[in-house]
Design a protein around this nucleic acid. Structure first.
Length: 661
RNA sequence: GCUGGCGUAGCUCAACUGGUAGAGCAGCGGAUUUGUAAUCCGCAGGUUACGGGUUCGAGUCCCAUCGCCAGCUCCA
């Protein structure tokens, strides 16, 4: 086997032959001793491989050094071992579990430790890690047999590792990595020596269930991050700081949009300004519902639990529901709108001719969420969805779903959300309904995805309890994924509610139910969107679209006249009547993120207009009131992202060049 | 729910090892009449989240409750 050859194509384009068991570090040496010394990993056809592992395959190959951004994952992975080593050195007898799968940003390690790690512990551990890094310990890779591996971890009294070892499928190659006295079960890849870990920092500690299952013991986890250089490490923390700046909870308070009270935990209060934004979002969806052939319905909040038993929620969703007893009857607040839609459908007979029937429902929902999981507007206990339930024939599913894709992408584009990630989720463990119906539903939805040609990620077992779903996910400022829109195909509820329609041939058909939301929860969307815009809402959403600033009290009347004209044309505007200097009013307007400031002094009062100052863009000069109203009205109607159209190209170009060296 | 941390004026934060709560901004009043990111002066504002306890004395130490933050688990 070792006589076999492989051909590696190097970055300079040259193709060279090597023995099949050649390792990346050996290949690096043939290129140059300096490259070999700096190497942290190899990369074969885009996959990072360990320096010491035989390559065995022909392909495009290169050597990664700390200068390559891709090397970061290897550095963090190695820092992870150094962390575990440091903890074992400082706290002998600590049982180790395992590190992190995804090293794209952070590393982590779980330990069985009698108490939580304190910040003093972290400091000590960091110092110990620094020592290990400085010692420049080489990482060694060893392929071992299962009995050898058992032997190693038995000797080290690493009982958790023995459990982990059992999880490795029979026949897999088992490798361990060692640096200094520390040995860990690990696939790699790792750097050559610990001193290639340029800069690292421990971030925080937390509890974490063994194997992520809350029925298991809780281990103590330490998080950290590492980079090739101090500069990259600093940039990482600067990014975190930027995320904090955009946090919607902070923006919501500062802009007086919403608040929370300990008397209604995890339930937002939308202040007058926040309610304007909220209602604009709903108005957008109502408008689109009209265009796409929906009928809006309004349904109750509180239902006899009989309904939930019938719908399956009592069986599969009870932990998330609020209950109350009235007159000896048990009631529950609705966590979803779908059963109400079914009840409406069932109030009379239906013909195939009226399908699809699309019921939009902006009803308020209540879901009990465990206290530890609630978070700002993104995870609350009461919210409304831009919800709808489409009753259609099986043959209409394809067209309905296709039209939903149009709607989703159209709406996300309005907010400038980058192409959302599409997930396809199938039958979960806790599901109701006939498995055969599930299979049909899953196959139908997947076919819609394929016919549409959208790229999607399979998410097995993550469907709703009544049907498979397609989810649309966008990323917030901190890189967290948030599910917004969803399309769920449901054959189960129509059966449970015995819904029917008279088919063309006179037989009785059973409608299919499509659940769908575009924004998802209005509350969550509000939060994600606020972070996305850093509070700089586009004109159509801004609670205060313009603020009129009189240069002094002398122009108060003129300012009020400008405001009155804007209001008469349906624009939201205020006058800053304080006896502050203009500079102060501008400052407060900018900090308040008002899109347009209209300055009225002697010149403007006489001409009957205002000087336009656009948020973050500065003075645009005097305009007539007609021009201001016309521009703002158009921008609002178009739901443009930019509050005021850019000036002609020449000026734009000139401005850009000013900033250049 | 679990692990860890936090809770002082509307906001941001002070108050040495326990010695009896203070500043900036915001608010209010007055002066000022202002031309593109902070005018000046004054006033008011707190049972230190809540309830117990230790102590001569608790914002500070201990216990319990509530809420918030991060993570785990879960999720629109």
């Amino acid at each position: 086997m070792s006589a076999e050859k492989i051909t590696l194509t190097l970055p300079d384009g040259s193709a060279r032959d090597f023995p099949a068991d050649a390792t990346p570090i050996e290949v690096a040496r043939t290129v140059g001793e300096r490259l070999a010394k700096a190497a942290v990993a190899g990369e074969l056809d885009g996959t990072i491989v360990d320096l010491r592992a035989p390559i065995r395959r022909s392909g495009k190959f290169r050597v990664l050094t700390p200068k390559d951004p891709e090397a970061g994952v290897v550095i963090r992975h190695s820092a992870e071992h150094v962390l575990a080593d440091a903890v074992e050195r400082l706290f002998p007898g600590t049982i180790i579990d395992a590190g992190r799968q995804d090293h794209s940003e952070k590393f982590q390690y779980d330990f069985r430790f009698p108490r939580g790690f304190t910040s003093e512990d972290l400091e000590k551990i960091e110092q110990e890690m620094a020592r290990i890094v400085q010692e420049g310990r080489p990482f060694e890779r060893k392929v071992v047999t299962r009995p050898q591996a058992v032997e190693i971890f038995k000797n080290r009294k690493e009982e958790i590792k023995l459990v982990r070892l059992e999880d490795i499928p029979e026949g897999d190659v088992i490798t361990v990595f060692q640096h200094g006295k520390f040995v860990d079960l690990c696939r790699g890849p790792h750097v050559q020596r610990t001193d290639q870990i340029g800069a690292f920092k421990l971030i925080e500690t937390s509890g974490a269930y063994f194997k992520g299952d809350e029925r298991n013991e809780m281990l103590q986890r330490i998080y950290g991050t590492a980079f090739a250089t101090k500069e990259e490490l600093d940039a990482y923390f600067a990014k975190i700081e930027e995320a904090r700046r955009r946090d919607h909870r902070r923006l919501g308070r500062e802009l007086d949009l919403f608040s929370f009270s300990s008397l209604a935990p995890a339930s937002p209060f939308f202040h007058p300004k926040g309610a304007i934004v909220y209602n604009q979002l709903v108005a957008l969806m109502r408008e689109l519902c009209r265009e796409y052939g929906y009928d809006e319905v309004v349904t109750p909040q509180l239902f006899d639990v009989e309904l939930w038993k019938r719908s399956g929620h009592y069986e599969a969703y009870r932990e998330n529901m609020f209950f109350s007893d009235v007159e000896g009857r048990e009631f529950s607040m609705k966590p979803m709108n779908c059963p109400a839609a079914c009840l409406i459908y069932a109030t009379r007979g239906h013909s195939y001719r009226e399908l699809p029937l699309r019921f939009a429902d902006f009803g308020r929902l209540h879901r009990y969420e465990r206290s530890g999981v609630v978070q700002g507007l993104t995870r609350v206990r009461t919210f409304a969805q831009d919800d709808a339930h489409i009753f259609c024939t099986p043959g209409q599913i394809g067209r309905e779903v296709d039209s939903l894709f149009d709607l989703m992408f159209r709406v996300y584009a309005i907010f400038g959300f980058e192409a959302p990630v599409v997930y396809f989720s199938t039958r979960p463990e806790k599901a109701i309904g006939d498995p055969k119906l599930w299979e049909t539903a899953e196959a139908t939805l997947e076919r819609c995805l394929k016919e549409r040609g959208v790229e999607y990620v399979a998410n097995p077992g993550e469907g709703a309890f009544y049907g498979p779903k397609i989810d649309f996910v966008v990323h917030d400022a901190i890189g967290r994924e948030w599910q917004l829109g969803t399309i769920q195909l449901d054959f189960t509820l129509p059966a449970r509610f015995e819904l029917a329609y008279a088919a063309e041939d006179g037989s009785e058909g059973r409608p299919v139910l499509i659940h769908r939301a575009v924004l998802g929860s209005i509350e969550r969307f509000f939060g994600v969107m606020l972070e996305h815009f850093v509070g700089d809402l586009p004109l159509w959403l801004a609670p205060e679209q313009a603020r009129v600033l009189p240069v002094s009290d002398k122009f108060l009347v003129a300012a009020r006249t400008v405001r009155a004209r804007l209001a008469a044309d349906g624009l939201r505007a205020e006058v800053d009547e304080r006896s502050e200097k203009l500079g102060a009013k501008i400052r407060d307007g900018e900090l308040g993120k008002v899109p347009i400031l209209l300055i009225v002094g002697a010149r403007e009062a006489e001409a009957g207009g205002a000087s336009v100052r656009v948020r973050h863009r500065g003075d645009l000069g005097s305009k007539t009131i007609d021009e201001i109203v016309a521009t703002m009205t158009t921008t609002t109607k178009q739901r443009a992202l930019n509050p005021w159209p850019e000036e002609d190209k020449e000026e734009g170009r000139g401005k850009k060049e000013e900033g250049r060296p």
